[in-house]
Nucleic acid binder design. Structure first.
Lengths: 259, 259
DNA sequence: CGGAAACCGGAAGGTCCCGTCCGTTTCCCT
DNA sequence: AGGGAAACGGACGGGACCTTCCGGTTTCCG
């Protein structure tokens, strides 16, 4: 317990989240070899996800981390939990950017900066984009952060409108619109995705300005990318293939038209 | 060889593409039961893809079409070919919309209509969106259509700029940008995707206008969604998993860091 | 009307991947 | 130093999917 070498009553579950670097999950009270491996797994996962997307098989990550599959699963009970843990950094960076934006004396400037930064993050990391769009991070860390983000975003938008620079009919949900759009542009690991994203953002920010604004069609009953529809919900953790596109879309029943 | 029933010279392969309705592929010279089944398969595929995306298992489509899996594979040698065939209609509709746009006396109006219509098509059909973004339709029908589309689009854009309504620094590749963005917004089968798409398009078209235009960052070296990177190419037809996300992203080698 | 080619459907072959089991190894505390 | 708990890793079970095979059936020409 490098954290609190109390010698007697191992302070295991005491209050682990104080490890020098970022410790998104629960690394406290782990044997040092376990902690070391956990770090290696996270690093390997981050690299793989960033480069190839979140559908990289767990076995691949395990191999690149130099551990067995079982070790990965012992530390992260499910694929989804690994993904969540791998991107918790990025997520807090997003939160940090939002805080900065809120602190900006010019709300409109803060708003623009926020959009630009977050979109740039997505453009630079394919895995983050996919994780963001994916449904399973709803609950857990992603979900909790989101609640706070929604609130802060609403405040920022209100303030930006107050300066008269952000058009009045702008909706908070339009941020989600932009983010999803950006994810679409970034989507695959196309080389020029960063440039494309920048251009997209420029177009959007231009049309968000109050001056010369024209009427818009009504916004969709859409929320932020995270917690979308409530479809078949479940499958959040189990069912392996979690993020794979198909699989889930199975029709009505198995013996629906038997023949 | 249903294609060339040598036997004598059945009018089979004469000029099949004249089958009353749309006949995207080669239904000529098929026994009537085969032709009937082919139609049922296509219909089932279209329904399934539209509703659940192109990752629906072949077996599901076969069941809903009331045929066996083998029948599907006999008619469409591979998953990809089925997808291509299923969406060939939509594709020609796109081409038609483009032609209409080109014929519009007001190029700017034609341009706007084109964007709106195509985006609406994507919003209404999840499968079409996925197929459009997917890489494998490069070759074959999709690819050929695209060449023509690129050319027509370039002309339309030039004409629209000529009227002074479309901003001068607009690039043809910005259409691809918009389409990809729209696919991102539509992405999942969210109920309100149509409304979201409409709003997205409105924002974009607003910022495409020449008046009050502001400088933009340079466009990405990006083409239309279809033929993107040339990555690991191959896998076009075979390799089952065609559209599945992961799988392909396998790391360097199998025994890369064996342990 | 009769036979052969063209068709059909279910089952089997081959991949890939998630998540668990269990014998073995490593670390930590006494 | 030594014993036990924690951790490790390879193999295994289970599930989906794509595609092919093969014996039985239907259509169509003469």
């Amino acid at each position: 317990m490098p954290d609190q070498p109390s010698h007697k009553d191992t302070p295991a579950a005491a209050h682990g989240a104080a490890d020098g670097a970022v410790d998104g999950g629960a690394a406290g009270g782990l044997r040092i070899d376990a902690r070391y491996n956990r770090e290696r797994i996270l690093r390997a996962a981050r690299e793989a996800y960033t480069a190839h997307g979140i559908d990289v098989p767990v076995a691949t990550i395990a191999r690149r981390a130099g551990v067995g599959v079982a070790t990965v699963y012992r530390r992260f009970p499910t694929r989804a939990s690994l993904v969540t843990a791998a991107f918790s950094r990025q997520l807090s960076r997003c939160a940090g950017v939002l805080d900065e934006a809120l602190a900006d004396p010019d709300p409109w400037h803060g708003f623009c900066t926020l959009i630009e930064q977050v979109c740039a993050m997505h453009a630079a990391d394919r895995g983050f984009t996919e994780a963001f769009l994916s449904e399973f991070p709803d609950s857990g860390e992603f979900g909790r952060e989101r609640a706070r983000a929604d609130e802060g975003l609403a405040r920022l938008v209100r303030a930006a409108k107050g300066t008269g620079k952000l058009r009045e009919d702008f909706e908070v949900s339009d941020v989600a619109l932009l983010l999803r759009a950006n994810c679409g542009v970034v989507g695959d690991s196309v080389p020029g995705s960063t440039a494309a994203s920048r251009r997209l953002v420029a177009y959007f920010l231009h049309s968000f300005r109050a001056e010369h604004a024209e009427p818009l069609p009504p916004p969709a009953p859409l929320d932020l990318p995270g917690p979308l529809r409530s479809r078949d919900g479940a499958r959040a953790a189990g069912s392996g293939t979690g993020a794979r596109a198909g699989t889930k879309a199975r029709g009505p029943r198995a013996a629906d038209q038997s023949r």
